[in-house]
């Protein structure tokens, strides 16, 4: 046995000499990959639960907000002005600048923003939930 200057070098020599200490088992790689996959699926299921909760909450919020603000949007002057586009297109086209300004002035902006925000939250969270489910549902996890 050669002489070593420190304990670390002696330990490394003995470990390498006894190949059983550094040779991994045949199933180690599969077990590590399985553990990683299981962790990923756990986080995916947490994400799916959060996205589903947001979807449900924002859908209920959308229904409530539409009940409150929907009539303001439907009965607004902007909808009546939009109908002029179909009934009197030639006159509207002649005074298109005034028509554009009148549409901008009469838009119920706040109502539209509130309703659109809830609709966007519902759609976005539903899309994220569907994507998460699709990504992790079809993966086969083989137990080693």
């Amino acid at each position: 046995m050669p002489k070593f200057s420190n304990l670390f070098e002696e330990t490394v020599y003995l470990a390498v000499k006894d190949s059983r200490l550094v040779t991994p088992s045949a199933t180690l790689a599969d077990r590590v990959l399985f553990a990683i996959e299981r962790k990923k699926r756990f986080y995916a299921s947490v994400k799916l639960a959060i996205y589903s909760l947001v979807t449900i909450t924002s859908s209920i919020g959308l229904a409530v907000v539409w009940r409150i603000e929907g009539s303001a949007i439907i009965n607004s002057e902007a909808i009546q002005l939009l109908s002029l586009l179909f009934s009197d297109f030639s006159i509207v086209a002649s005074y298109w600048q005034d028509y554009a300004f009148s549409l901008l002035e009469s838009l119920p902006v706040v109502s539209i923003i509130v309703v659109a925000s809830f609709a966007w939250a519902a759609c976005a969270s539903l899309w994220m939930a569907a994507r998460t489910y699709k990504t992790f549902n079809h993966r086969a996890v083989v137990r080693v």
Binding site: E77, Q80, L81, D98, Y99, F101, S102, E105, S106
Partner: peptide, 14 residues
């Protein structure tokens, strides 16, 4: 009565 309201639409009326 007309104070404190939002500004009126200038190009249209309904």
């Amino acid at each position: 009565d007309v104070r404190g309201r939002e500004f009126m639409d200038a190009n249209s009326a309904f």
